[in-house]
Design a protein around this nucleic acid. Sequence first.
DNA 1: TGACTGAATTATGAATTCATTATTCATTTA
DNA 2: TAAATGAATAATGAATTCATAATTCAGTCA
Lengths: 221, 221
Amino acid sequence: MTFADTTGKLARPALSVELTDRVRELIMEGELKEGHKVPERYLTERFGVSRTPLREAIKVLAHEGFVVLVPNRGAVVAPQSLDEIEEILPIVGALEGLAGELAAQHASDADIRNISRLTDRLREAFEARDRPTYFQINQSIHAAIIQAAGNPALLRNHATFARRIYRARYQANLSESRWKEATEEHEKIAEALAARDAKGLGELLREHLSHKMRSIRSALK
Amino acid sequence: MTFADTTGKLARPALSVELTDRVRELIMEGELKEGHKVPERYLTERFGVSRTPLREAIKVLAHEGFVVLVPNRGAVVAPQSLDEIEEILPIVGALEGLAGELAAQHASDADIRNISRLTDRLREAFEARDRPTYFQINQSIHAAIIQAAGNPALLRNHATFARRIYRARYQANLSESRWKEATEEHEKIAEALAARDAKGLGELLREHLSHKMRSIRSALK
DNA sequence: TGACTGAATTATGAATTCATTATTCATTTA
DNA sequence: TAAATGAATAATGAATTCATAATTCAGTCA
Protein backbone atom coordinates (compact mmCIF):
# COMPACT_ATOMS: atom_id res chain seq x y z
CA MET A 1 0.00 0.00 0.00
CA THR A 2 1.27 3.43 -0.92
CA PHE A 3 0.09 6.98 -0.39
CA ALA A 4 0.91 8.14 -3.89
CA ASP A 5 -1.86 10.41 -5.04
CA THR A 6 -2.07 10.38 -8.79
CA THR A 7 -5.16 12.56 -8.94
CA GLY A 8 -3.98 15.12 -6.44
CA LYS A 9 -7.53 16.28 -5.86
CA LEU A 10 -9.77 13.68 -4.25
CA ALA A 11 -8.78 14.41 -0.65
CA ARG A 12 -8.80 18.07 0.31
CA PRO A 13 -6.21 19.26 2.81
CA ALA A 14 -7.04 19.46 6.49
CA LEU A 15 -8.80 22.59 7.71
CA SER A 16 -5.92 23.39 10.03
CA VAL A 17 -3.53 23.61 7.09
CA GLU A 18 -5.86 25.94 5.23
CA LEU A 19 -6.34 28.02 8.36
CA THR A 20 -2.62 28.31 8.95
CA ASP A 21 -2.28 30.05 5.59
CA ARG A 22 -5.34 32.25 6.02
CA VAL A 23 -4.41 33.48 9.49
CA ARG A 24 -0.80 34.03 8.44
CA GLU A 25 -2.08 36.22 5.62
CA LEU A 26 -4.15 38.25 8.08
CA ILE A 27 -1.01 38.89 10.09
CA MET A 28 1.12 39.73 7.05
CA GLU A 29 -1.49 42.10 5.70
CA GLY A 30 -1.58 43.81 9.06
CA GLU A 31 -5.23 43.05 9.75
CA LEU A 32 -4.13 41.30 12.91
CA LYS A 33 -1.89 43.86 14.47
CA GLU A 34 1.38 43.10 16.18
CA GLY A 35 1.24 42.94 19.94
CA HIS A 36 -2.51 42.26 19.88
CA LYS A 37 -4.16 39.04 20.96
CA VAL A 38 -5.20 36.56 18.31
CA PRO A 39 -9.01 36.73 18.56
CA GLU A 40 -10.05 33.07 18.55
CA ARG A 41 -13.78 33.66 18.69
CA TYR A 42 -13.75 36.22 15.90
CA LEU A 43 -11.64 34.01 13.66
CA THR A 44 -13.78 30.91 14.18
CA GLU A 45 -16.86 32.93 13.23
CA ARG A 46 -15.14 34.59 10.30
CA PHE A 47 -13.97 31.31 8.82
CA GLY A 48 -16.95 29.28 9.97
CA VAL A 49 -14.91 26.63 11.76
CA SER A 50 -14.61 25.39 15.31
CA ARG A 51 -11.79 26.24 17.66
CA THR A 52 -10.04 22.89 17.25
CA PRO A 53 -8.52 23.34 13.78
CA LEU A 54 -7.95 27.05 14.42
CA ARG A 55 -5.95 26.29 17.52
CA GLU A 56 -3.89 23.73 15.60
CA ALA A 57 -3.12 26.46 13.09
CA ILE A 58 -2.11 28.85 15.87
CA LYS A 59 0.31 26.27 17.24
CA VAL A 60 2.01 26.07 13.85
CA LEU A 61 2.13 29.86 13.50
CA ALA A 62 3.71 30.02 16.94
CA HIS A 63 6.37 27.64 15.75
CA GLU A 64 6.94 29.80 12.68
CA GLY A 65 7.34 32.82 14.92
CA PHE A 66 4.31 34.79 13.74
CA VAL A 67 2.61 34.56 17.11
CA VAL A 68 3.77 33.96 20.65
CA LEU A 69 1.90 31.62 22.97
CA VAL A 70 1.26 32.86 26.47
CA PRO A 71 0.09 30.10 28.85
CA ASN A 72 -3.57 30.50 29.73
CA ARG A 73 -3.74 33.74 27.81
CA GLY A 74 -3.74 32.50 24.25
CA ALA A 75 -1.57 33.85 21.46
CA VAL A 76 -0.26 37.31 20.69
CA VAL A 77 0.83 38.52 17.26
CA ALA A 78 4.63 38.75 17.36
CA PRO A 79 5.92 42.32 17.17
CA GLN A 80 7.90 43.43 14.09
CA SER A 81 10.61 45.31 15.90
CA LEU A 82 13.94 46.24 14.38
CA ASP A 83 15.44 43.59 16.65
CA GLU A 84 13.23 40.98 15.03
CA ILE A 85 14.39 42.03 11.59
CA GLU A 86 18.01 42.05 12.73
CA GLU A 87 17.50 38.48 13.85
CA ILE A 88 15.69 37.21 10.79
CA LEU A 89 17.32 38.97 7.86
CA PRO A 90 20.78 37.45 8.37
CA ILE A 91 19.13 34.03 8.40
CA VAL A 92 17.39 34.81 5.12
CA GLY A 93 20.79 35.93 3.85
CA ALA A 94 22.44 32.66 4.82
CA LEU A 95 19.66 30.69 3.19
CA GLU A 96 19.76 32.73 -0.01
CA GLY A 97 23.54 32.39 -0.06
CA LEU A 98 23.16 28.62 0.04
CA ALA A 99 20.41 28.84 -2.58
CA GLY A 100 22.84 30.70 -4.81
CA GLU A 101 25.52 28.04 -4.45
CA LEU A 102 23.03 25.31 -5.23
CA ALA A 103 21.43 27.25 -8.06
CA ALA A 104 24.82 27.79 -9.70
CA GLN A 105 25.19 24.02 -9.76
CA HIS A 106 21.67 22.87 -10.50
CA ALA A 107 19.87 25.64 -12.39
CA SER A 108 18.69 24.82 -15.87
CA ASP A 109 19.77 27.04 -18.74
CA ALA A 110 16.16 28.21 -18.94
CA ASP A 111 16.30 29.22 -15.26
CA ILE A 112 19.44 31.23 -15.92
CA ARG A 113 17.99 32.94 -18.97
CA ASN A 114 14.86 33.76 -17.00
CA ILE A 115 16.80 35.34 -14.13
CA SER A 116 18.99 37.21 -16.58
CA ARG A 117 15.91 38.61 -18.29
CA LEU A 118 14.37 39.59 -14.97
CA THR A 119 17.59 41.38 -14.08
CA ASP A 120 17.39 43.40 -17.30
CA ARG A 121 13.87 44.40 -16.39
CA LEU A 122 15.03 45.28 -12.90
CA ARG A 123 17.56 47.68 -14.42
CA GLU A 124 14.80 49.23 -16.55
CA ALA A 125 12.57 49.67 -13.51
CA PHE A 126 15.44 51.36 -11.73
CA GLU A 127 16.16 53.67 -14.69
CA ALA A 128 12.47 54.61 -14.71
CA ARG A 129 12.54 54.99 -10.90
CA ASP A 130 9.45 52.76 -10.81
CA ARG A 131 9.55 51.46 -7.24
CA PRO A 132 6.53 49.15 -7.25
CA THR A 133 7.73 47.38 -10.39
CA TYR A 134 11.28 47.25 -9.05
CA PHE A 135 10.17 45.60 -5.82
CA GLN A 136 8.02 43.13 -7.65
CA ILE A 137 10.79 42.08 -10.04
CA ASN A 138 13.27 42.01 -7.19
CA GLN A 139 11.04 39.59 -5.35
CA SER A 140 10.66 37.45 -8.47
CA ILE A 141 14.42 37.19 -8.87
CA HIS A 142 15.01 36.08 -5.32
CA ALA A 143 12.16 33.59 -5.59
CA ALA A 144 13.57 32.26 -8.86
CA ILE A 145 17.00 31.71 -7.32
CA ILE A 146 15.53 29.79 -4.41
CA GLN A 147 13.45 27.77 -6.83
CA ALA A 148 16.44 27.00 -9.02
CA ALA A 149 18.34 25.63 -6.04
CA GLY A 150 16.07 22.60 -6.22
CA ASN A 151 15.95 21.98 -2.47
CA PRO A 152 12.36 21.74 -1.20
CA ALA A 153 13.28 22.01 2.48
CA LEU A 154 15.29 25.12 1.76
CA LEU A 155 12.40 26.55 -0.21
CA ARG A 156 9.93 26.01 2.62
CA ASN A 157 12.21 27.30 5.33
CA HIS A 158 13.18 30.35 3.35
CA ALA A 159 9.55 31.14 2.67
CA THR A 160 8.74 31.04 6.36
CA PHE A 161 11.46 33.51 7.29
CA ALA A 162 11.03 35.70 4.24
CA ARG A 163 7.34 36.13 5.02
CA ARG A 164 8.15 37.35 8.49
CA ILE A 165 10.14 40.29 7.16
CA TYR A 166 8.17 40.78 3.98
CA ARG A 167 7.11 44.33 4.70
CA ALA A 168 10.47 45.46 5.97
CA ARG A 169 12.21 43.98 2.98
CA TYR A 170 9.99 45.22 0.22
CA GLN A 171 8.38 48.31 1.63
CA ALA A 172 11.35 49.95 3.26
CA ASN A 173 12.22 52.99 1.22
CA LEU A 174 15.72 52.83 -0.07
CA SER A 175 17.94 55.76 -0.87
CA GLU A 176 18.89 56.67 -4.40
CA SER A 177 22.49 55.58 -3.89
CA ARG A 178 21.56 52.29 -2.26
CA TRP A 179 19.01 51.66 -5.00
CA LYS A 180 21.65 52.07 -7.69
CA GLU A 181 24.05 49.85 -5.78
CA ALA A 182 21.42 47.15 -5.30
CA THR A 183 20.68 47.16 -9.02
CA GLU A 184 24.36 46.72 -9.80
CA GLU A 185 24.61 43.90 -7.27
CA HIS A 186 21.77 42.16 -9.04
CA GLU A 187 23.65 42.37 -12.31
CA LYS A 188 26.69 40.79 -10.72
CA ILE A 189 24.43 38.09 -9.28
CA ALA A 190 23.01 37.29 -12.70
CA GLU A 191 26.53 37.16 -14.14
CA ALA A 192 27.82 34.83 -11.45
CA LEU A 193 24.85 32.56 -12.04
CA ALA A 194 25.42 32.54 -15.81
CA ALA A 195 29.07 31.67 -15.13
CA ARG A 196 27.88 28.99 -12.68
CA ASP A 197 30.26 30.41 -10.10
CA ALA A 198 28.81 28.75 -7.00
CA LYS A 199 31.10 30.25 -4.38
CA GLY A 200 30.96 33.68 -5.92
CA LEU A 201 27.19 33.67 -6.19
CA GLY A 202 26.79 32.52 -2.62
CA GLU A 203 29.07 35.29 -1.45
CA LEU A 204 27.32 37.91 -3.58
CA LEU A 205 23.91 36.98 -2.20
CA ARG A 206 25.08 36.99 1.39
CA GLU A 207 26.58 40.43 0.84
CA HIS A 208 23.50 41.65 -0.99
CA LEU A 209 21.30 40.74 1.96
CA SER A 210 23.80 42.16 4.40
CA HIS A 211 23.65 45.48 2.55
CA LYS A 212 19.88 45.30 2.61
CA MET A 213 20.08 44.88 6.37
CA ARG A 214 22.25 47.96 6.63
CA SER A 215 19.80 49.92 4.48
CA ILE A 216 16.79 48.90 6.57
CA ARG A 217 18.68 49.66 9.75
CA SER A 218 19.47 53.21 8.72
CA ALA A 219 15.92 53.73 7.40
CA LEU A 220 14.33 52.64 10.66
CA LYS A 221 16.63 54.59 12.95
CA MET B 1 -0.51 45.38 31.20
CA THR B 2 2.45 43.27 30.23
CA PHE B 3 3.21 39.57 29.93
CA ALA B 4 6.58 39.77 31.60
CA ASP B 5 7.02 36.71 33.75
CA THR B 6 9.42 37.47 36.55
CA THR B 7 9.05 34.11 38.21
CA GLY B 8 9.18 32.04 35.07
CA LYS B 9 7.52 29.16 36.84
CA LEU B 10 3.95 29.84 37.89
CA ALA B 11 2.28 28.88 34.63
CA ARG B 12 3.36 25.55 33.20
CA PRO B 13 3.62 25.26 29.41
CA ALA B 14 0.75 23.88 27.40
CA LEU B 15 0.49 20.12 27.06
CA SER B 16 0.86 20.35 23.32
CA VAL B 17 4.28 21.96 23.69
CA GLU B 18 5.40 19.24 26.08
CA LEU B 19 4.02 16.58 23.77
CA THR B 20 5.79 18.02 20.76
CA ASP B 21 9.10 17.43 22.52
CA ARG B 22 8.19 14.00 23.81
CA VAL B 23 6.96 12.67 20.49
CA ARG B 24 9.92 14.19 18.66
CA GLU B 25 12.18 12.30 21.02
CA LEU B 26 10.38 9.07 20.27
CA ILE B 27 11.04 9.64 16.58
CA MET B 28 14.67 10.62 17.10
CA GLU B 29 15.32 7.61 19.31
CA GLY B 30 13.83 5.41 16.63
CA GLU B 31 11.00 4.12 18.78
CA LEU B 32 8.58 5.49 16.19
CA LYS B 33 10.01 4.08 13.01
CA GLU B 34 10.25 5.97 9.75
CA GLY B 35 7.55 5.22 7.26
CA HIS B 36 5.21 3.98 9.98
CA LYS B 37 2.02 5.65 11.05
CA VAL B 38 2.03 7.80 14.16
CA PRO B 39 -0.15 5.74 16.54
CA GLU B 40 -2.50 8.31 18.04
CA ARG B 41 -4.35 5.98 20.35
CA TYR B 42 -1.18 4.41 21.72
CA LEU B 43 0.43 7.79 22.36
CA THR B 44 -2.58 9.26 24.13
CA GLU B 45 -2.64 6.24 26.44
CA ARG B 46 1.11 6.30 26.97
CA PHE B 47 1.16 9.95 27.92
CA GLY B 48 -2.24 9.97 29.59
CA VAL B 49 -3.63 12.81 27.52
CA SER B 50 -6.48 13.28 25.09
CA ARG B 51 -6.13 13.44 21.34
CA THR B 52 -6.54 17.22 21.15
CA PRO B 53 -3.13 18.31 22.46
CA LEU B 54 -1.45 15.33 20.81
CA ARG B 55 -2.83 16.30 17.45
CA GLU B 56 -1.65 19.87 17.95
CA ALA B 57 1.82 18.48 18.59
CA ILE B 58 1.63 16.36 15.45
CA LYS B 59 0.77 19.44 13.39
CA VAL B 60 3.89 21.17 14.66
CA LEU B 61 6.04 18.10 14.01
CA ALA B 62 4.66 18.01 10.49
CA HIS B 63 5.77 21.58 10.04
CA GLU B 64 9.21 20.67 11.34
CA GLY B 65 9.38 17.84 8.84
CA PHE B 66 9.48 14.95 11.30
CA VAL B 67 6.15 13.58 10.12
CA VAL B 68 4.08 13.91 6.99
CA LEU B 69 0.33 14.49 7.15
CA VAL B 70 -1.81 12.37 4.87
CA PRO B 71 -5.42 13.58 4.60
CA ASN B 72 -7.82 11.26 6.39
CA ARG B 73 -4.99 8.89 7.13
CA GLY B 74 -3.18 10.68 9.90
CA ALA B 75 0.55 11.21 10.07
CA VAL B 76 3.49 9.10 8.96
CA VAL B 77 7.01 9.35 10.37
CA ALA B 78 9.13 10.98 7.66
CA PRO B 79 11.69 8.64 6.14
CA GLN B 80 15.40 9.34 6.75
CA SER B 81 16.60 8.72 3.25
CA LEU B 82 19.95 9.87 1.93
CA ASP B 83 17.98 12.36 -0.13
CA GLU B 84 16.56 13.85 3.05
CA ILE B 85 20.02 14.25 4.49
CA GLU B 86 21.32 15.76 1.25
CA GLU B 87 18.53 18.30 1.56
CA ILE B 88 18.94 19.14 5.21
CA LEU B 89 22.68 19.04 5.85
CA PRO B 90 23.53 21.92 3.48
CA ILE B 91 20.93 24.01 5.29
CA VAL B 92 22.53 23.18 8.61
CA GLY B 93 25.83 24.15 7.02
CA ALA B 94 24.51 27.52 5.90
CA LEU B 95 23.08 28.19 9.35
CA GLU B 96 26.27 27.17 11.13
CA GLY B 97 28.27 29.32 8.72
CA LEU B 98 26.16 32.30 9.69
CA ALA B 99 26.46 31.33 13.33
CA GLY B 100 30.23 31.39 12.91
CA GLU B 101 30.19 34.87 11.42
CA LEU B 102 28.00 36.15 14.21
CA ALA B 103 29.93 34.32 16.90
CA ALA B 104 33.20 35.85 15.69
CA GLN B 105 31.60 39.25 16.26
CA HIS B 106 29.56 38.66 19.39
CA ALA B 107 31.14 35.83 21.37
CA SER B 108 32.42 36.68 24.82
CA ASP B 109 36.02 35.92 25.68
CA ALA B 110 34.71 33.21 27.99
CA ASP B 111 32.82 31.66 25.05
CA ILE B 112 36.00 31.61 23.02
CA ARG B 113 38.05 30.08 25.81
CA ASN B 114 35.37 27.45 26.33
CA ILE B 115 35.31 26.47 22.67
CA SER B 116 39.08 26.44 22.56
CA ARG B 117 39.19 24.12 25.55
CA LEU B 118 36.56 21.86 24.01
CA THR B 119 38.65 21.71 20.86
CA ASP B 120 41.65 20.55 22.87
CA ARG B 121 39.55 17.81 24.39
CA LEU B 122 38.30 16.90 20.91
CA ARG B 123 41.91 16.41 19.82
CA GLU B 124 42.52 14.19 22.86
CA ALA B 125 39.45 12.11 22.11
CA PHE B 126 40.69 11.68 18.56
CA GLU B 127 44.19 10.68 19.71
CA ALA B 128 42.57 8.10 22.00
CA ARG B 129 40.27 7.01 19.17
CA ASP B 130 37.37 7.40 21.61
CA ARG B 131 34.41 7.80 19.27
CA PRO B 132 31.60 8.32 21.79
CA THR B 133 33.52 11.06 23.58
CA TYR B 134 34.57 12.61 20.28
CA PHE B 135 30.99 12.78 19.05
CA GLN B 136 29.79 14.23 22.31
CA ILE B 137 32.44 16.96 22.38
CA ASN B 138 31.92 17.62 18.68
CA GLN B 139 28.26 18.23 19.36
CA SER B 140 29.08 20.51 22.29
CA ILE B 141 31.36 22.63 20.12
CA HIS B 142 28.78 23.12 17.40
CA ALA B 143 26.15 23.91 20.01
CA ALA B 144 28.48 26.41 21.69
CA ILE B 145 29.13 28.23 18.41
CA ILE B 146 25.41 28.53 17.71
CA GLN B 147 24.87 29.76 21.25
CA ALA B 148 27.66 32.30 20.97
CA ALA B 149 26.06 33.76 17.86
CA GLY B 150 23.44 35.28 20.12
CA ASN B 151 20.55 34.94 17.67
CA PRO B 152 17.58 33.11 19.24
CA ALA B 153 15.76 32.57 15.94
CA LEU B 154 18.90 31.06 14.44
CA LEU B 155 19.30 28.85 17.50
CA ARG B 156 15.75 27.51 17.26
CA ASN B 157 15.84 26.96 13.53
CA HIS B 158 19.20 25.27 13.63
CA ALA B 159 18.02 22.97 16.40
CA THR B 160 15.04 21.87 14.33
CA PHE B 161 17.13 20.93 11.33
CA ALA B 162 20.02 19.50 13.33
CA ARG B 163 17.65 17.16 15.15
CA ARG B 164 16.35 15.82 11.87
CA ILE B 165 19.78 14.57 10.86
CA TYR B 166 21.03 13.84 14.36
CA ARG B 167 21.65 10.18 13.80
CA ALA B 168 23.26 10.59 10.41
CA ARG B 169 25.52 13.30 11.72
CA TYR B 170 26.72 11.73 14.92
CA GLN B 171 26.35 8.05 14.36
CA ALA B 172 27.70 7.73 10.85
CA ASN B 173 31.02 5.98 11.08
CA LEU B 174 33.76 8.12 9.72
CA SER B 175 36.97 6.89 8.21
CA GLU B 176 40.32 7.30 9.92
CA SER B 177 41.47 9.87 7.37
CA ARG B 178 38.27 11.88 7.53
CA TRP B 179 38.36 11.75 11.30
CA LYS B 180 41.85 13.25 11.37
CA GLU B 181 40.84 15.89 8.85
CA ALA B 182 37.74 16.83 10.84
CA THR B 183 39.80 17.23 13.98
CA GLU B 184 42.19 19.55 12.17
CA GLU B 185 39.28 21.53 10.78
CA HIS B 186 38.02 22.01 14.30
CA GLU B 187 41.36 23.41 15.34
CA LYS B 188 41.24 25.91 12.48
CA ILE B 189 37.71 26.81 13.52
CA ALA B 190 38.81 27.51 17.08
CA GLU B 191 41.69 29.63 15.78
CA ALA B 192 39.48 31.68 13.47
CA LEU B 193 37.10 32.30 16.34
CA ALA B 194 39.92 33.37 18.66
CA ALA B 195 41.10 35.74 15.92
CA ARG B 196 37.50 36.93 15.52
CA ASP B 197 37.80 36.35 11.80
CA ALA B 198 34.10 36.40 10.90
CA LYS B 199 34.34 35.70 7.18
CA GLY B 200 36.98 33.04 7.66
CA LEU B 201 35.05 31.28 10.38
CA GLY B 202 31.86 31.29 8.33
CA GLU B 203 33.70 29.82 5.41
CA LEU B 204 35.43 27.18 7.55
CA LEU B 205 32.14 26.04 9.04
CA ARG B 206 30.41 25.85 5.69
CA GLU B 207 33.30 23.77 4.37
CA HIS B 208 33.35 21.61 7.49
CA LEU B 209 29.71 20.73 7.02
CA SER B 210 30.19 20.22 3.33
CA HIS B 211 32.95 17.69 4.04
CA LYS B 212 30.69 16.02 6.57
CA MET B 213 28.09 15.70 3.83
CA ARG B 214 30.65 14.06 1.56
CA SER B 215 31.63 11.67 4.34
CA ILE B 216 28.05 10.64 5.05
CA ARG B 217 27.35 10.23 1.37
CA SER B 218 30.21 7.82 0.85
CA ALA B 219 29.35 5.93 4.05
CA LEU B 220 25.74 5.40 3.02
CA LYS B 221 26.44 4.40 -0.53
C1' DT C 1 -11.97 60.32 43.99
C1' DG C 2 -9.12 56.18 43.80
C1' DA C 3 -7.38 51.87 45.10
C1' DC C 4 -9.01 47.30 46.67
C1' DT C 5 -12.09 43.23 46.96
C1' DG C 6 -14.62 39.52 45.15
C1' DA C 7 -18.52 37.80 42.39
C1' DA C 8 -19.90 37.42 37.43
C1' DT C 9 -18.31 36.84 32.98
C1' DT C 10 -15.32 35.40 29.49
C1' DA C 11 -11.44 32.90 27.42
C1' DT C 12 -8.44 29.21 27.46
C1' DG C 13 -6.80 24.31 27.61
C1' DA C 14 -8.11 19.89 27.31
C1' DA C 15 -11.48 15.95 27.08
C1' DT C 16 -15.21 14.10 24.89
C1' DT C 17 -18.52 13.36 21.33
C1' DC C 18 -19.95 12.96 16.62
C1' DA C 19 -19.84 12.49 11.51
C1' DT C 20 -17.07 10.87 7.92
C1' DT C 21 -13.56 8.23 5.80
C1' DA C 22 -10.46 4.32 5.66
C1' DT C 23 -9.48 -0.43 6.80
C1' DT C 24 -10.46 -5.14 7.85
C1' DC C 25 -12.51 -9.29 7.17
C1' DA C 26 -15.99 -12.61 6.18
C1' DT C 27 -18.67 -13.91 2.22
C1' DT C 28 -19.75 -14.42 -2.53
C1' DT C 29 -18.69 -15.32 -7.24
C1' DA C 30 -15.93 -16.41 -11.26
C1' DT D 1 -8.24 -20.70 -5.37
C1' DA D 2 -8.36 -15.80 -6.26
C1' DA D 3 -10.55 -11.71 -6.92
C1' DA D 4 -14.57 -8.85 -5.77
C1' DT D 5 -18.16 -7.25 -2.73
C1' DG D 6 -19.97 -5.19 1.23
C1' DA D 7 -20.90 -5.17 6.20
C1' DA D 8 -18.40 -4.43 10.57
C1' DT D 9 -14.83 -2.12 12.77
C1' DA D 10 -11.49 1.34 13.63
C1' DA D 11 -9.28 5.77 12.82
C1' DT D 12 -9.51 10.41 11.53
C1' DG D 13 -11.10 15.36 11.39
C1' DA D 14 -13.76 18.54 13.45
C1' DA D 15 -17.38 20.25 16.75
C1' DT D 16 -18.83 20.42 21.22
C1' DT D 17 -18.56 20.17 26.13
C1' DC D 18 -16.33 20.84 30.47
C1' DA D 19 -13.03 22.41 34.13
C1' DT D 20 -10.01 25.94 35.20
C1' DA D 21 -7.72 30.29 34.84
C1' DA D 22 -7.94 35.17 33.63
C1' DT D 23 -10.49 39.35 33.08
C1' DT D 24 -14.12 42.57 33.98
C1' DC D 25 -16.79 45.24 36.78
C1' DA D 26 -19.84 46.56 40.52
C1' DG D 27 -19.48 47.55 45.21
C1' DT D 28 -16.67 48.75 49.35
C1' DC D 29 -13.72 51.40 52.02
C1' DA D 30 -9.83 54.56 52.78
